[in-house]
Design a protein around this nucleic acid. Structure first.
Length: 174
DNA sequence: ACCCCGATCGTA
DNA sequence: ACGATCGGGGTT
Protein backbone atom coordinates (compact mmCIF):
# COMPACT_ATOMS: atom_id res chain seq x y z
CA UNK A 1 0.00 0.00 0.00
CA UNK A 2 1.33 3.37 -1.04
CA UNK A 3 0.46 6.36 1.06
CA UNK A 4 1.45 10.00 0.79
CA UNK A 5 2.99 11.37 3.98
CA UNK A 6 0.73 13.89 5.67
CA UNK A 7 1.21 16.75 8.09
CA UNK A 8 1.14 14.67 11.26
CA UNK A 9 4.12 12.61 10.09
CA UNK A 10 6.28 15.72 10.17
CA UNK A 11 4.83 17.25 13.35
CA UNK A 12 6.92 14.96 15.51
CA UNK A 13 10.40 14.78 16.98
CA UNK A 14 12.87 15.68 14.23
CA UNK A 15 15.22 12.76 14.82
CA UNK A 16 12.29 10.36 14.69
CA UNK A 17 11.09 11.90 11.44
CA UNK A 18 14.64 11.70 10.02
CA UNK A 19 14.86 8.02 10.97
CA UNK A 20 11.46 7.18 9.54
CA UNK A 21 12.15 8.98 6.27
CA UNK A 22 14.67 6.22 5.52
CA UNK A 23 12.95 3.91 3.07
CA UNK A 24 10.36 6.53 2.14
CA UNK A 25 10.21 7.81 -1.42
CA UNK A 26 10.81 11.42 -2.37
CA UNK A 27 8.77 12.21 -5.47
CA UNK A 28 9.60 15.23 -7.60
CA UNK A 29 8.02 15.76 -11.00
CA UNK A 30 7.55 12.04 -11.44
CA UNK A 31 11.12 11.13 -10.40
CA UNK A 32 11.44 8.78 -7.43
CA UNK A 33 14.25 8.72 -4.88
CA UNK A 34 14.25 6.03 -2.19
CA UNK A 35 15.80 7.86 0.75
CA UNK A 36 18.69 6.19 2.54
CA UNK A 37 20.46 9.03 4.34
CA UNK A 38 19.08 11.95 6.38
CA UNK A 39 20.13 14.44 9.03
CA UNK A 40 18.18 16.24 11.76
CA UNK A 41 18.66 19.92 12.58
CA UNK A 42 16.52 21.05 15.45
CA UNK A 43 15.93 23.35 18.37
CA UNK A 44 17.41 26.46 19.91
CA UNK A 45 20.52 24.72 21.23
CA UNK A 46 21.78 23.17 17.99
CA UNK A 47 24.66 25.38 16.79
CA UNK A 48 24.79 23.60 13.41
CA UNK A 49 21.20 24.50 12.61
CA UNK A 50 20.23 27.48 10.50
CA UNK A 51 17.59 28.12 13.14
CA UNK A 52 20.20 28.58 15.85
CA UNK A 53 20.68 32.32 15.40
CA UNK A 54 17.03 33.15 15.50
CA UNK A 55 14.37 33.49 12.85
CA UNK A 56 15.72 35.10 9.68
CA UNK A 57 14.31 35.25 6.16
CA UNK A 58 16.32 32.17 5.22
CA UNK A 59 15.50 30.08 8.29
CA UNK A 60 11.87 31.14 8.54
CA UNK A 61 10.60 27.89 7.02
CA UNK A 62 12.30 25.96 9.82
CA UNK A 63 10.24 28.05 12.25
CA UNK A 64 7.03 27.47 10.33
CA UNK A 65 4.56 24.66 10.02
CA UNK A 66 5.82 21.10 9.50
CA UNK A 67 5.90 19.51 6.07
CA UNK A 68 7.19 22.49 4.11
CA UNK A 69 10.13 22.44 1.71
CA UNK A 70 13.24 24.33 2.84
CA UNK A 71 15.83 24.61 0.06
CA UNK A 72 18.95 26.70 0.44
CA UNK A 73 22.03 27.40 -1.63
CA UNK A 74 25.35 26.21 -0.23
CA UNK A 75 28.90 27.02 -1.36
CA UNK A 76 27.45 29.26 -4.02
CA UNK A 77 26.79 26.28 -6.25
CA UNK A 78 24.80 23.50 -4.61
CA UNK A 79 21.32 23.22 -3.22
CA UNK A 80 20.19 21.27 -0.15
CA UNK A 81 16.66 19.94 0.33
CA UNK A 82 15.03 19.88 3.75
CA UNK A 83 11.53 19.38 5.07
CA UNK A 84 10.35 21.32 8.12
CA UNK A 85 9.32 19.41 11.22
CA UNK A 86 7.75 19.81 14.68
CA UNK A 87 5.67 22.77 15.78
CA UNK A 88 5.35 26.39 14.65
CA UNK A 89 8.02 28.61 16.25
CA UNK A 90 10.25 25.61 17.00
CA UNK A 91 13.08 25.64 14.41
CA UNK A 92 13.58 22.17 12.96
CA UNK A 93 14.03 20.32 9.68
CA UNK A 94 15.35 17.12 8.14
CA UNK A 95 18.04 17.30 5.44
CA UNK A 96 17.74 14.74 2.65
CA UNK A 97 21.33 13.61 2.10
CA UNK A 98 21.02 10.59 -0.16
CA UNK A 99 18.99 7.90 -1.80
CA UNK A 100 18.49 5.67 -4.79
CA UNK A 101 17.08 7.38 -7.84
CA UNK A 102 14.90 4.97 -9.79
CA UNK A 103 15.98 5.33 -13.40
CA UNK A 104 13.83 2.67 -15.03
CA UNK A 105 11.97 -0.52 -14.22
CA UNK A 106 15.08 -2.47 -13.32
CA UNK A 107 17.76 0.00 -12.35
CA UNK A 108 18.65 2.85 -10.04
CA UNK A 109 21.59 5.08 -9.23
CA UNK A 110 22.87 5.98 -5.78
CA UNK A 111 22.87 9.68 -4.99
CA UNK A 112 25.14 10.25 -2.00
CA UNK A 113 25.29 13.84 -0.81
CA UNK A 114 22.63 16.53 -0.58
CA UNK A 115 24.12 18.56 -3.43
CA UNK A 116 23.92 15.61 -5.79
CA UNK A 117 20.34 14.85 -4.77
CA UNK A 118 19.22 18.33 -5.74
CA UNK A 119 21.40 18.54 -8.83
CA UNK A 120 20.21 15.22 -10.26
CA UNK A 121 16.54 15.78 -9.43
CA UNK A 122 16.62 19.40 -10.59
CA UNK A 123 15.60 20.87 -7.26
CA UNK A 124 16.51 24.49 -6.59
CA UNK A 125 15.28 27.60 -4.79
CA UNK A 126 12.09 27.64 -6.84
CA UNK A 127 10.90 24.67 -4.77
CA UNK A 128 11.49 26.58 -1.55
CA UNK A 129 8.31 27.00 0.47
CA UNK A 130 6.29 24.25 -1.22
CA UNK A 131 3.89 22.46 1.12
CA UNK A 132 5.05 18.88 0.63
CA UNK A 133 1.81 17.52 2.06
CA UNK A 134 -0.27 19.34 -0.58
CA UNK A 135 1.90 19.65 -3.68
CA UNK A 136 1.22 17.32 -6.62
CA UNK A 137 4.83 17.64 -7.81
CA UNK A 138 6.89 17.40 -4.60
CA UNK A 139 5.96 15.02 -1.80
CA UNK A 140 6.92 11.89 0.14
CA UNK A 141 5.44 8.41 -0.18
CA UNK A 142 5.32 5.47 2.22
CA UNK A 143 5.72 2.31 0.18
CA UNK A 144 5.85 0.03 3.20
CA UNK A 145 9.60 -0.15 3.74
CA UNK A 146 11.01 0.11 7.24
CA UNK A 147 14.77 0.07 7.42
CA UNK A 148 17.21 -0.23 10.27
CA UNK A 149 19.81 2.50 10.45
CA UNK A 150 23.07 3.67 11.97
CA UNK A 151 23.31 7.03 13.75
CA UNK A 152 26.47 9.12 13.34
CA UNK A 153 27.60 12.73 13.71
CA UNK A 154 26.40 15.04 10.97
CA UNK A 155 28.60 15.78 7.96
CA UNK A 156 30.29 19.05 7.11
CA UNK A 157 29.66 20.89 10.37
CA UNK A 158 32.05 22.10 13.05
CA UNK A 159 29.67 22.44 15.97
CA UNK A 160 27.08 20.07 17.35
CA UNK A 161 29.24 17.03 16.58
CA UNK A 162 28.17 15.49 19.88
CA UNK A 163 24.73 14.82 18.44
CA UNK A 164 24.36 11.58 16.49
CA UNK A 165 21.74 13.08 14.21
CA UNK A 166 22.80 11.63 10.87
CA UNK A 167 20.92 8.48 9.96
CA UNK A 168 22.06 6.00 7.33
CA UNK A 169 20.02 3.03 6.19
CA UNK A 170 21.71 -0.32 6.83
CA UNK A 171 19.62 -2.66 4.73
CA UNK A 172 18.41 -2.78 1.15
CA UNK A 173 21.22 -0.44 0.23
CA UNK A 174 23.79 -1.58 -2.24
C1' DA B 1 25.84 47.89 0.15
C1' DC B 2 29.04 44.52 1.03
C1' DC B 3 31.90 41.07 2.95
C1' DC B 4 32.68 36.37 4.28
C1' DC B 5 32.05 31.78 4.36
C1' DG B 6 29.57 27.47 4.05
C1' DA B 7 24.45 21.27 6.33
C1' DT B 8 29.66 20.30 -0.80
C1' DC B 9 31.98 17.91 -4.49
C1' DG B 10 35.60 16.07 -7.07
C1' DT B 11 40.21 15.20 -7.54
C1' DA B 12 44.79 14.25 -5.47
C1' DA C 1 43.50 15.71 2.46
C1' DC C 2 42.37 19.85 0.16
C1' DG C 3 41.23 23.45 -3.09
C1' DA C 4 37.65 25.45 -6.28
C1' DT C 5 33.84 28.20 -6.35
C1' DC C 6 30.29 32.14 -5.70
C1' DG C 7 25.49 33.49 -4.35
C1' DG C 8 23.28 35.42 -0.83
C1' DG C 9 22.46 35.62 4.24
C1' DG C 10 23.54 38.36 8.02
C1' DT C 11 25.32 42.29 9.46
C1' DT C 12 27.16 46.99 8.56
Amino acid sequence: MVKKLERDFFQRNTCLVAQELLGKVLVFQGQRLIINETEAYAGFDDPASHGFRGKTPRSSIMYGEAGFCYVYLIYGMYHCLNVSTEQVDYPAAVLIRGGRLITDLTSSVNLNGPGKVCRELGINLSQRGIDMTQSPELYFEDIGLKWSYAATPRIGIKQGLEHLWRFVALTNVE
